[in-house]
Design a protein around this nucleic acid. Sequence first.
DNA 1: GTCTATATCATGATAGAC
DNA 2: GTCTATCATGATATAGAC
Lengths: 209, 209
Amino acid sequence: MDTSAAYSTETERRILQAATDIFLLKGRDGARMQEIADKAGINKAMLHYYFRSKDKLYEQVFIVQLEQFFTGLLDAIPETDDVHAFLEHFIDSYMDSMAANEGLVRFIIWEIQSGAHLMPAFIQTMFSKRGYRKPLFLVKIEQAIDKGQMRNVEPVNFVISLIGLCAYPFIARPVLEKVLGGLSISSAEFLAQRKTEILQLIWNGIRPE
Amino acid sequence: MDTSAAYSTETERRILQAATDIFLLKGRDGARMQEIADKAGINKAMLHYYFRSKDKLYEQVFIVQLEQFFTGLLDAIPETDDVHAFLEHFIDSYMDSMAANEGLVRFIIWEIQSGAHLMPAFIQTMFSKRGYRKPLFLVKIEQAIDKGQMRNVEPVNFVISLIGLCAYPFIARPVLEKVLGGLSISSAEFLAQRKTEILQLIWNGIRPE
DNA sequence: GTCTATATCATGATAGAC
DNA sequence: GTCTATCATGATATAGAC
């Protein structure tokens, strides 16, 4: 009776895995149904049998990947009340996550630059799964300001700064690695140095006046 | 005798302008030769007559646009020796430039995410035009450190931070504007607020210990 | 230089036999 | 459910008349 079980046949999982690999590597437009079929070890007709169209297939991949990404981001928000420890842990987790998922970063940027059309629907889904609550991040910042642990920054703007500092090296990776010959963004050396610099910059930057 | 003049016929300029508009709007893959031809007021055959292929046409557009972008970036580096004024002026110019060129930002990000394959050749071109010199930015920072005007940051890492703080809102624009309902990244209000926050964050963040 | 018509090809999608 | 064969479309690119 459980018809939803049919939604996860072995074949279907193989297709989704192959589609994920290809879409993350080549992007929505660059991906070819033939290539996905080959990688999944089936023929094109089966792709359309299981998923109606390329768009539908892409949408499935998108939802799974973004859920994974945001879950990771939320999990990187520690519970501690100490602002310094909070920042240090977040920066550490978030950057490690990006360093380990080059394809996912590229995928998300592609999607954003294409207009982020799937975003609103995705956010709706996340909300209905987790229930709406004010982002923990903003709450933490407001608390820290109230306690006088940091100066009166505009919380949203501050989050943009923090995320930007962490994410930018990965966004610009291809240029940086080409221009600064020999640099590897994901190398332990660069990552460690970058984390330290971000933390120092932020930590000094938000000190109460 | 001046055959190079033939390289800038009215038709050719119309084509380049149309191609620029379309490529910036739709990206390399999304752009259609037919659409470019329509916009230029000619037919497809002429595109291939003047530019051999779509790739060649794209490359021309790419070079012109990137030269424009980097020239703007370099022009945004003021001569002043005062670190605070230097940062303030750079942040101001750079962000205004991005706010006014949404299409160009998207174009560059697309190109970067596709692997930045045209970058090395482009940088070569820039060097041979301007001659190599150590980036003024790095020189300024090293001087400021020597003079004790800022703490001993790693210069390259600092530049990445500064550019990241300025550029990230524009990179993430589609998401930010969708998630934070009503926010307009290019609005005078947001820009002014953001510039102030970046300058304060950076300025506090690099104070000598 | 400019146009029409067409070659050539790749892709997403489907029909229909088994 | 699975396969082969094929359609329909839309793209780049070119041939050839004017």
